[in-house]
Amino acid sequence: MRFRHAPGIRADHPTLAAGVIAVDGIDDGANVDDAVAAHVARATSMLATTAISELPQIQAWRRTFAAMGLKPTQYRCAAESLLRRLAKVGTLPRIHPLVDLCNAVSVAAAIPVAVLDRDRIKGDLEVRRAHGDETYATFAGDVEHPVPGEVIFADEAGQAHARRWTYKQSSTSTVRPETRDVLIVSEALHPGAAADVEALLTTLGTEIARAWPRPTPTPTLLTAERPETRV
C-alpha cells in the first residue's frame, strides 16, 4: 500500500512535515514500561515550565483547526488531547504496548502520532478532503459520514480512518491484541517541523526495535518533494 498527502493538502499547508514507520510482526506481549515512563517524564517536565497553549507544535495545529472552521477548544489534535490528560491526571491511558509507546513519544514531542492496523486498511491510504460519502466507524458502534471538505485519512474502499485530520481515529483500524502489521503516522505544521518529526521517527524506531527485536522498523520522512511512500 501507499501512504500520501493529496496535492491540495500540501498546497494549503506548505509547512507540513510527516513521517511514517511500517512495522511487521508486533505482538501485545512487549514490556515498554520503562520507555513509556521516560518519555512521559520528559513531557511532564516540559509542562512544568510551558503551558500547552504556548507550545509551537500545538499552536500550529490550533491555527489549522480554526482555519478548517473547527473550534480549537472543542476539537483538539491528538497530541494536545493527550497532553491535557497528562496535565490533569498525571498519567496516560494504557491500551496496547505499541500504542502506549507511541502516545508517550507523542506527548514528549507534542506532535500527533497515529497507529493503524495495516490489515484493516483497504488499498492505499491518503490524507485528503472528504467527498462526504466515506464511512467512519465510531467507538460507540455508529457509522458517520465526514462533512464534505473535511480532512480525513481515506482508503480506497472509502473508509475514513481518521476525521478532522489528527482529531480522532476510527475504530476500524485501531490496534488490537491480534494486530501484527502496523502503520505509524506522525504529522506537524510548526516551524522546524521536519527536523522534529525526523527526530520523533528516530526515537520511535529505536524504542520499537528494543521492545520488538524481530520487526525491522522502516522510518520515512515525507515532504513536499517526497509526498508519498510505499509501506
Rank of each mutant, 00 (worst) to 15 (best):
F3C: 01
I9M: 11
R10E: 15
A11P: 08
D12R: 14
H13I: 14
A18Q: 12
A22R: 15
D24W: 13
G25L: 11
D27K: 09
D28E: 15
G29R: 15
V32E: 03
V32W: 00
D33I: 10
D34N: 13
A38R: 12
V40C: 01
V40H: 04
A41H: 06
A43R: 00
S45N: 12
M46C: 15
L47P: 01
A48V: 07
E54V: 07
L55K: 12
R62A: 04
T64N: 10
L70Y: 11
K71M: 14
P72W: 03
P72G: 07
Q74T: 13
Q74G: 13
Y75Q: 01
E80V: 07
L83D: 04
R85N: 05
A87W: 05
P93I: 01
R94T: 05
H96A: 05
H96P: 02
L98R: 00
V99T: 07
V99F: 04
D100T: 07
N103Y: 02
N103R: 10
V105L: 00
I111T: 12
V113G: 03
L116N: 08
D117E: 08
D117Q: 09
R120T: 04
I121G: 03
I121N: 00
K122A: 14
G123E: 04
G123A: 01
R129N: 10
A130S: 05
H131M: 13
G132H: 12
E134M: 07
T135S: 14
T138N: 09
V143P: 04
E144S: 10
E144T: 11
G149A: 11
E150N: 00
A154I: 12
G158N: 06
Q159A: 05
Q159C: 11
H161T: 06
A162E: 06
R163A: 01
R163E: 04
R164W: 06
R164Q: 14
T166R: 09
K168D: 14
S171A: 15
T172I: 09
V175K: 00
T179G: 09
L183P: 00
V185P: 10
V185S: 04
S186A: 11
E187V: 13
E187G: 08
E187R: 06
A188I: 06
A194Y: 04
D196T: 11
D196N: 14
E198V: 10
L200C: 03
L200V: 02
L204C: 01
G205R: 02
T206I: 06
E207K: 09
I208K: 05
I208W: 00
A209C: 03
W212R: 03
T216H: 10
P217A: 02
P217K: 05
P217V: 06
T218F: 05
P219W: 01
L221W: 03
L221E: 02
L222C: 11
T223M: 09
A224F: 13
R226D: 13
P227V: 12
E228T: 07
